[in-house]
Design a binder for these strands. Structure first.
Length: 373
DNA sequence: GACCCGTGGCA
DNA sequence: TTGCCAAGGGT
């Protein structure tokens, strides 16, 4: 084995010339193939910081397809940051229901209030200023600074991590490799058009340099890609395998009073914070059904509890959940226990119901599983 | 750094 | 089916 092949392979990058530098190739590709997205300014147009910010928050760990309708709903109802800052948190949460990661909605609202009250309704135009706002971390601050204000900074998201780790065949595992990847990604910034450089990498990552079966033949940087030269592009980025959580079990109680349903709000902090739910037991690993059922709400004038056949399952990021569903009917004018309320079943669509609760209610009421919107 | 926090699509 | 992944942030 020759000394060269024994090394961790790192092929020499092709020498770049002024006319074929990576940032230039990238922008040329972007100008031909950029996606048209609702929050993205047309070429030559100034971008609206409010729309950039709103889209960046919604896009955190969330696909473009899922965000689209939510973004349209939000800007239609709240066309600028001052309008959003003047809304109520409940309205914002209701509008966000179904998108997931609900702390984003609370921080979104807190941020709009802060910008309205502390910044005269104008977003800070520096990374540091943005970083100080609720819900804006290192990535989002850099993204807004680059895209909305053309600051010379490179946001690094999952797409860019993948593109860069392949381009330079970064052997170090994530998340330890983040500083190195940030440094390498910054070399891909064009002197002008920082925001377009970043969006070019994101578009490249989502449409060409995909996690599986990347379309290397269509990539403007294919001649320059270290992983491609080794044929190992799908193995990047390197990362340690992650462990899955332990199954938790619990019970949920679907109580109806005529055409109304008994619900309550979850605590502000923590899992599904501030969202609406039907009363239920704790969700614990190893909990048996009898123990969970003992946590049923106490109401007067209730018919017998009926256990629905089957269970509702849901998988959160850190654990799978299995819920047994019990139903009962309450007599007319039965009072809701403290902290709970009756809501008309017809208006449930407007409630801040996370998907797991939509499943529970559908199961409890004997409805078909809601067609995913 | 390790955990926590949703949901939908994909192979 | 199970696991991975998606424009991350907060604690």
């Amino acid at each position: 084995m020759s000394p060269r092949s024994a090394r961790k392979a790192r092929p020499e990058p092709a020498p770049s010339t002024a006319s074929s530098s990576r940032p230039t190739l990238l922008l040329a590709w972007y100008d031909r193939h950029r996606r048209r997205l609702p929050w993205r300014a047309m070429p030559g147009e100034a971008s609206d910081p409010y729309r950039v910010w709103l889209s960046e928050i919604m896009l955190q760990q969330t696909t473009v397809k899922a965000v689209g309708p939510y973004f349209e709903k939000f800007v239609a109802r709240w066309p600028d940051v001052t309008a959003l800052g003047s809304a109520s948190q409940d309205d914002v949460l209701r509008m966000w229901a179904g998108l997931g990661y609900y702390s984003r909605a609370r921080n979104l609202y807190a941020c709009a209030v802060a910008v309205t009250r502390d910044h005269g309704g104008v977003f800070p135009d520096t990374e540091e200023g943005l970083r100080a706002l609720p819900g804006i971390g290192p990535y989002t601050a850099a993204a807004i600074a680059a895209i909305a204000f053309d600051r010379h900074t490179m946001p690094v998201d999952g797409n860019i991590e993948r593109v860069v780790s392949r381009l330079f065949a970064v052997e170090e595992e994530l998340p330890q490799a983040k500083p190195l990847i940030q440094q390498l990604a910054t070399t891909l910034l064009a002197n002008a058009r920082a925001g377009d450089s970043a969006q070019a990498l994101m578009d490249l990552g989502s449409s060409i340099c995909t996690p599986k079966k990347p379309a290397c033949s269509l990539c403007p940087l294919t001649e320059d890609c270290a992983a491609r030269a080794q044929g190992t592009q799908e193995t990047f980025p390197r990362k340690a395998p992650k462990k899955s959580g332990t199954l938790r079990r619990g019970a949920a109680f679907v109580v109806t009073r005529g055409d109304e349903l008994l619900v309550r709000s979850r605590p502000e902090k923590g899992l599904l914070g501030g969202m609406t739910e039907v009363p239920g037991s704790d969700w614990l690993a190893g909990q048996d059904d009898d123990e969970a059922k003992r946590q049923a709400p106490a109401l007067k004038g209730l018919s017998r509890w009926q256990r629905r056949v089957g269970v509702v399952t849901h998988v959160f990021t850190h654990f799978p959940l299995e819920l047994v569903v019990y139903t009962a009917k309450a007599e007319a004018r039965t009072r809701a226990p403290a902290g709970m309320r009756w809501v008309p079943i017809a208006t449930l669509a407007g409630e801040a119901l996370p998907n797991v609760m939509r499943k529970v209610i559908a199961h409890g009421l004997g409805l078909p599983p809601a067609a995913s919107s």
